[in-house]
Computed example of a mutant assay.
Amino acid sequence: MPASDKAPSAQPGVVVDPYRAYNFKLIDHGLMQAAFTRVEGLAIIVNRALFRAGGENSVVRAIPMQVSYPPVKLWYGVTDSDELLRWLFTAVKGRVERRDVSLALLNEAGTDHVRRWDFFGAWPCEWHGTPLDALGDELAIESLTLAFDRLELADDGNQAP
């Protein structure tokens, strides 16, 4: 996004509203595969080692160690598309199909990416089907959990990996 199109940055006396958490999409090879209702677990964990430098007994320092990426859980409405389940069943059959996918946070109008996280080497590792209840009237929502090798913040918010 060109600098002239960006929202104003926070400055003293200027209120900049945060983006809404409900406007997002998952991008897989440039196509959105499902209408997602929720995403949970977006995180990076940098493990640390604590040590005391020689002669500085009152100071405990931390140095970064291994980086880990917890799986991300996606909730989506059941539709005619079974692409996500077919992807899962390749892993069930022992053939993990790794894909590069992105999670894009959209502006309030839903037209532009304002932030995008790129997941490299993603593959489905867990699925939970929708509860079925003949007396209920809720939407059919199931969840898919993705494991991945690496997570990066995209340099520009508009291009998929």
Rank of each mutant, 00 (worst) to 15 (best):
Tyr69Trp: 13
Ile44Arg: 01
Arg52Leu: 02
Gly41Ser: 04
Pro2Ala: 13
Pro131Thr: 04
Val16Thr: 06
Asp112Pro: 00
Ser68Thr: 11
Glu152Ser: 09
Val67Gly: 11
Asn57Cys: 03
Val59Ser: 01
Arg52Gly: 08
Phe36Ala: 02
Arg150Asp: 05
Glu142Arg: 07
Asn47Ala: 15
Gln11Ser: 01
Pro18Tyr: 12
Lys6Thr: 10
Ile141Val: 14
Leu146Phe: 14
Phe51Arg: 04
Asp17Ala: 11
Trp127Arg: 00
Asp17Trp: 12
Glu126Lys: 12
Glu142His: 07
Arg98Trp: 08
Lys6Trp: 13
Val39Ala: 05
Gly55Glu: 10
Leu85Thr: 00
Glu83Trp: 06
Ala7Trp: 04
Ile45Trp: 03
Arg150Val: 00
Trp117Ile: 00
Thr130Leu: 11
Thr90Lys: 13
Asn158Thr: 02
Gly94Arg: 12
Trp127Pro: 00
Leu106Val: 03
Glu152Asn: 04
Leu139Met: 10
Thr79Gln: 02
Phe51Ala: 02
Pro18Ala: 05
Gln159His: 15
Glu108Cys: 03
Asp28Leu: 15
Val78Phe: 06
Phe51Val: 04
Met65Asn: 12
Val15Gly: 04
Trp127Ser: 00
Ala49Asn: 13
Asn23Ile: 07
Val16Ala: 11
Glu108Thr: 01
Glu56Arg: 01
Leu144Glu: 02
Glu40Met: 03
Pro71Gln: 03
Lys73Trp: 06
Ile141Tyr: 05
Asp82Leu: 06
Ala3Asp: 11
Val92Thr: 09
Phe119Ile: 07
Leu135Ala: 04
Asp156Lys: 05
Ala35Trp: 10
Lys6Ala: 12
Phe148Asn: 07
Gly129Pro: 02
Arg61Phe: 09
Val16Leu: 06
Tyr22Thr: 03
Phe120Leu: 11
Val92Arg: 11
Met1Asp: 13
Gly157Ser: 05
Gly77Val: 14
Ile63Asp: 10
Glu83Thr: 08
Gly129Tyr: 09
Arg38Phe: 05
Val96Leu: 15
Ile63Pro: 00
Val114Gly: 05
Met65Val: 15
Asp149Ser: 13
Ser81Gln: 10
Glu138Phe: 02
Thr111Ser: 11
Arg38Gln: 14
Ala122Gly: 11
Ala91Trp: 14
Asp156Arg: 05
Lys73Pro: 01
Ala160Glu: 12
Ser9Thr: 01
Ala160Cys: 10
Glu126Asp: 09
Asp28Arg: 12
Arg38Thr: 02
Pro124Glu: 11
Val60Trp: 00
Gly54Tyr: 03
Arg95Val: 15
His128Val: 07
Asp155Pro: 11
Phe24His: 01
Glu142Ile: 05
Lys6Asp: 06
Arg95Ser: 14
Pro124Leu: 12
Glu152Thr: 13
Thr79Val: 07
Leu103Lys: 01
Gly77His: 04
Ser9Phe: 13
Gly30Met: 15
Ile44Thr: 11
Phe148Trp: 12
Ala21Asp: 11
Ile27Tyr: 10
Asn23His: 13
Ala34Val: 09
Ala109Glu: 08
Ala134Pro: 03
Ala43His: 08
Leu84Val: 12
Leu151Glu: 06
Leu151Tyr: 13
Ala62His: 06
Asp5Leu: 15
Phe119Gly: 04
Ala3Cys: 06
Met1Tyr: 06
Leu74Asn: 02
Ala122Arg: 14
Pro8Trp: 15
Trp127Cys: 03
Glu83Leu: 06
Ile44Lys: 07
Asn23Asp: 11
